[in-house]
Design a protein around this nucleic acid. Structure first.
Lengths: 105, 105
DNA sequence: TTCATTCATCAAAAAAATTTGATTTAAAAA
DNA sequence: TTTTTAAATCAAATTTTTTTGATGAATGAA
């Protein structure tokens, strides 16, 4: 026989994954990255480095945050890494009004 | 005769207001507030205090961040303050998939 | 007027996120 | 093999955000 979960008076839904996603977008450098990937499609880190004008370790740091939040895909080929927008995830969070800025459609 | 703006090689669009908006959503307490206002409509601070279970100064701090980002309206009547969702702003940022969680429709 | 209530604000402390520069890893080229 | 290149990771320093508890402002009631 299953126990019913005990609901405390002020317990709330768990928004942890939404927090992680909004945090990922809450930084100008990461929005610039999202914008470039939205406009350019799949791009390798070395090209991004030039476009966003960020030192490599900083760019890596920010890409990881976007990746962990699910907003971008990643593929490695040899020594190159390519990143591109995960449209499903982006569309599930962002308004279509943001089309072409941070989401491709 | 007007000067054309000088565009630097790696200048980017200014995303400052988007950053402010995503920052406002990038906190669990503030998402809980958004969720309550989405479900309950216009609510006074004293009632919110009970619902979100936050000390008054903390709640004030978080409401101000949501307010400055444009996500909520505010009205003061006597000593009471009421807050409610600014649907236009919320809808311009958040996907309709988030209906009923952080946007009312 | 005095008192109580609601809410905003403040400054200091604490916690979390970002930057920085160096190092490491892995793959490809010489 | 050795060297080079691309990218990830790391620890320390810095910056930003949040928390905390106290104080202040404004309103209305006694």
């Amino acid at each position: 026989m299953k126990e019913l979960p005990i609901i405390q008076p002020n317990e709330h839904i768990d928004f942890a994954s939404y927090v992680q996603q909004f945090k990922a977008l809450a930084d100008e450098k990461r929005l610039i990255i999202m914008n470039i990937l939205t406009r350019n499609g799949k791009t390798c880190v070395c090209d991004l480095e030039v476009e966003v004008n960020l030192p490599q370790s900083k760019l890596s740091y920010h890409l990881k945050i976007l990746y962990k939040a699910g907003f971008i895909h990643k593929e490695t080929k040899g020594t190159w890494s390519y990143y591109w927008i995960n449209e499903d995830v982006v569309n599930s969070i962002l308004s279509e009004d943001l089309c072409c800025l941070f989401r491709p459609n």
